[in-house]
Design a protein around this nucleic acid. Sequence first.
DNA 1: CTGAAAGCGCTTACAG
DNA 2: CTGAAAGCGCTTACAG
Lengths: 332, 332
Amino acid sequence: MDGNKRIGVRDVARHAGVSVATVSRVVADSGYPVAKATRERVLSSVQQLGFVPNLIARTFATSRTKTIGVAVPVLNAYYARMLMGIEGEATRNGLSILLSIVGDDHDRRESAIDQFLARRLDGIVVCSGAGDSALDRGPARIGIPTVIVGQQPDAGFATVTVDNRQASYMATAHLLERGHRELIFLTSRSDWFDFRDRLAGFAACLAERGAGYRGQVIEGAFSERDAYDRIRQAVAAGTRATAVLAATDRQALGALAALADLGIPIPGKMAVVGFDNLPTSEFIRPALTSVDMPADDMGATAIAMIVKAKGPDAIALADMTLEPRLIVRSSS
Amino acid sequence: MDGNKRIGVRDVARHAGVSVATVSRVVADSGYPVAKATRERVLSSVQQLGFVPNLIARTFATSRTKTIGVAVPVLNAYYARMLMGIEGEATRNGLSILLSIVGDDHDRRESAIDQFLARRLDGIVVCSGAGDSALDRGPARIGIPTVIVGQQPDAGFATVTVDNRQASYMATAHLLERGHRELIFLTSRSDWFDFRDRLAGFAACLAERGAGYRGQVIEGAFSERDAYDRIRQAVAAGTRATAVLAATDRQALGALAALADLGIPIPGKMAVVGFDNLPTSEFIRPALTSVDMPADDMGATAIAMIVKAKGPDAIALADMTLEPRLIVRSSS
DNA sequence: CTGAAAGCGCTTACAG
DNA sequence: CTGAAAGCGCTTACAG
């Protein structure tokens, strides 16, 4: 439709009767001093010509992309919340987000990082799947400020984590205070460190109380369906537990459904507590007691760390641990 | 740590004893013919030197960013699903995603588009909030293939929508078949066209059946909490309705909670149906009947349209409408 | 405060 | 099949 060449700094310079250097200085809003009258002339020309600076050229010239690469395993409620925290803090700092969804696949994650590297992004946030191993490359080989969110401190990388052990301890203590003496810990993939830590907090809390307390660990898969089946089985097997601590709200939801279908009163005969505090958890019935994980804060923190970083490894040793919060509702 | 200059095409060229042109041709994997031996020599040098092509420079030279800008209002379950569809199809086509979360704010959406324009992205996907008005600029002024997802055909832009009217008609017909004669349509923001269309489908279905059927429209806010309150009020006011069609699963969830708290049997005394088929809807009890919206397919379709587009407005007239699907569960 | 000019690292007609 | 060279549109020391 509109075949004429795009307007460039040169056109603006000619139109305003100044040099391209001056145009660049006012348009890029560099702190560089430009006479007020000159500046206004340039701005007016920009307006009249409809000049939109080519950010690719600027990026090329400055080698600052103003972009952060973000790799997430999947966009479930947890990572979506994290991503909102990331995006908000990035936008506040004039940074854009290049998003890659990499699944559980180690290779896809590495190739996403390759892409970030080739694009010379200003920073990288890796939202770790709980089972992800360390990154293939150390910080020196990456050469870009990189923060890993949701994984234990990784050699040389900055990390942001939540205290899973503490979270689980808290949830377990809550159930014990409610009078429960025999608990089920319903988890999945105990090789994932998030879940391992939650198990550790559970076990530690029980161990501390001594002999009268018993914990049973049921390890299944991640899905509601699997949790549903496991709890039905446990009940059929005549479990004496009166409470279920599920490693995620999704599993808790499956547990609640199983108990409901079996006609077992909640929390009367069986209490249920989960992790993540999904948006729906407040409105299901019974409302689900859950440990809220501040995923958005974790994401925002990661960006803040990158923004503060001067060199590639200025933040190498920084590690942040945020605190979870138990939200007590009627399921416990 | 590693202060040496980065490796560039020049270094590779020298190392392999060829020209930079040749290096570029093999590294960029252009179809351009290069002798096999030469190619291998170059590849070997690339390996040895650890050359990572600078994509910024390439982008600058080719003015193809291999990046699609995506603007979403918020990352709830619906848009997260859409984004996964978008990201998957983009990755399959070698494209990256620049993500902007713009809220309900018209200005923030426009400035996200400004950013996409300045970055000279290869395409733009605007995931419309249901209430968003048309874009400020026509396709000619944008000059980049742009697809609007989830909004009615917009002057000159390609759109991908789902047939909300049909979806709602279907859900209403389902309730009528179940024997309900007096229904509540619980919605919010009837100025949003998604909800307007759902209302229209509801009304049309009832009107078609004739005199014995009655519909009551309750317009509230979007939240579970508001839906909860509205349904309590309706019951307190002695509504004769025996079914609630909620404009979203979130509102349906609020309705279910209200009915549960009032001790009203579902679906015995009151049936509930929602829209969106949230991941949790299958596992709450009673499981929620819901209209599944293929958000991921919509997102993937938008990317496919951009990929197929030759010029900026080659897809200007394309509009796709996808079909929703009713998932019947125990709440109805 | 202003400008002329080099340079960012690739790609790509063009010539051979 | 290969190479020399121009060019993509900005920014930024440097000189004035």
